[in-house]
Simulated scan of single mutants.
Amino acid sequence: MIDIQKALDLVLSQKQFYGAEEVPLTEAVGRFLAEDIFTDRDAPPFDRVMMDGIAIQLKDINDPLRPNYPIQGIQAAGAPQMTLKAPDHCLEVMTGAILPLGTDTVIPYEEVEIKDGTAYVKIKKAIKRFVHRKGSDSPNGALVLQKGKKIHPGDIGILATVGKSRVVVAKFPTIAIISTGDELVEIDEKPLAHQIRKSNVYNLWASLLQEGIHAERHHIIDDHGVLQTQLKILIQKFDVLLLSGGVSMGKFDHLPTVFEELGVQKLFHRVAQRPGKPFWFGYHKEFNTKIFAYPGNPVSTYVNHLFYFQQWLHASLGQTLQMEHKELGEDIPANPNLARFVSVKIDPVTGNVVPFSHNGSGDLFSLAETDGFLLLPQREKEYQKGERLLFLAIR
Rank of each mutant, 00 (worst) to 15 (best):
I4Q: 13
K6A: 14
V11P: 08
L12I: 09
S13L: 09
G19A: 08
A20D: 12
V23P: 12
P24S: 03
V29I: 14
G30N: 09
G30S: 07
A34M: 05
E35L: 06
E35D: 13
I37K: 08
R41W: 01
A43T: 13
A43I: 15
P45S: 14
F46L: 12
F46G: 05
M50W: 05
M51N: 14
I56P: 00
Q57F: 11
I61W: 09
D63H: 15
P64C: 00
A79R: 06
M82P: 03
L84M: 01
A86F: 12
P87L: 10
D88F: 00
H89M: 11
T95S: 11
I98K: 14
G102E: 00
T105D: 03
T105A: 02
V106Q: 02
P108I: 06
P108N: 01
Y109H: 15
K115N: 09
A119F: 05
Y120H: 08
Y120K: 03
K122H: 02
K124M: 12
I127H: 10
R129N: 13
R129A: 14
R133I: 14
S136E: 07
G141R: 08
G148Y: 06
K149M: 15
K149H: 12
K150D: 01
I151P: 01
P153H: 04
D155H: 15
G157W: 14
G157R: 14
G163C: 07
K164G: 06
V167M: 00
F172T: 01
T174A: 12
I177H: 02
T180I: 03
T180N: 15
D182V: 07
D182A: 01
V185F: 04
E189V: 00
P191Y: 03
Q195T: 03
Q195Y: 04
L204R: 00
S207P: 04
H214G: 10
A215H: 04
D222K: 08
D223H: 13
D223W: 06
H224S: 12
T229R: 14
Q230G: 02
L234C: 06
L241R: 12
L241C: 10
L242E: 09
L243N: 11
G245Q: 04
V247T: 05
V247R: 02
S248Y: 06
M249L: 14
K251C: 08
D253L: 06
L262Q: 04
G263L: 04
L267Y: 06
H269N: 13
P275T: 11
K277V: 07
F279I: 06
Y283G: 02
Y283T: 15
H284Y: 09
H284W: 06
K285E: 13
T289G: 09
I291Y: 01
P295F: 11
G296K: 11
V299R: 05
S300T: 12
N304E: 05
L306E: 11
Y308V: 11
Q311S: 08
W312G: 10
M323S: 15
E327M: 13
P336R: 10
N337L: 14
N337G: 15
V344G: 13
V344C: 13
K345A: 11
I346K: 13
D347P: 10
V349A: 15
G351A: 05
F356K: 03
H358Q: 04
L367I: 12
T370S: 05
P377F: 03
R379Q: 15
K381S: 09
Q384C: 07
K385M: 02
G386V: 05
R388L: 13
L390S: 09
L390K: 12
F391D: 10
L392Y: 00
A393T: 10
R395F: 12
